[in-house]
Amino acid sequence: MSPEYVIQGIFSEKSDVFSFGVLLLEIVSKRKNASFYEDAESLSLLGFTWNLWNADNTASLIDPEISSSCKKEDIIRCIHIGLLCVQELARDRPTMTSVVSMLSSETVNLPPPKQPAFILRQTIIDIESSLTNDGLGSINNVSITNIQGR
């Protein structure tokens, strides 16, 4: 989900762009964002990709099956486009029309991506412990009632 939807409940076409970027990175890497446990620093797939991008080592992100059937430059371009799509601020993300243009044309110059949203992965256990340790929140037990008709 896009940051603006998670934080403010706002949904727009740029939310779809964010989701497309995550999907594109999942396809290229053959790794799921939701169950990514590659890195000991608790990085998400987006954070892991960002670190590899900054280290100029995106080749290690690419799934070997895809690498054997496509040109490496095309795959790295897809990673670049994926990172542009997952920018934290909606205004920094391209439109889907621009994304299609970027994917279909090798001559379109791509701007450098900024740090994406959600680079750190936070588990439910981390969230619960932070709520109870600083006293700012609480964890409520919830009961579920079965409603039956007469």
Rank of each mutant, 00 (worst) to 15 (best):
S2I: 07
V6M: 11
I7F: 12
E13A: 06
S15L: 01
S15M: 03
F18L: 09
F18G: 14
V22Y: 12
L23W: 09
L23I: 15
L24G: 02
V28N: 01
S29Y: 12
K30C: 04
K32G: 10
A34F: 04
S35Y: 07
F36A: 13
F36P: 13
A40M: 09
E41P: 03
W50A: 12
N51S: 10
N54L: 06
N54W: 04
T58S: 00
A59Q: 13
S68G: 01
S69A: 10
D74F: 00
D74V: 08
C78W: 03
H80L: 07
H80A: 14
G82Q: 03
E88F: 05
E88N: 09
E88Q: 14
R91C: 14
T95A: 10
T97E: 14
S98H: 12
V100R: 15
M102L: 02
L103P: 02
S105N: 15
P116N: 10
A117M: 01
R121M: 11
Q122N: 11
I125C: 07
D126F: 01
S130V: 12
T132E: 09
T132S: 12
T132V: 12
N133L: 10
D134C: 14
G135M: 13
S138G: 07
I139W: 04
N146M: 06
G149F: 07
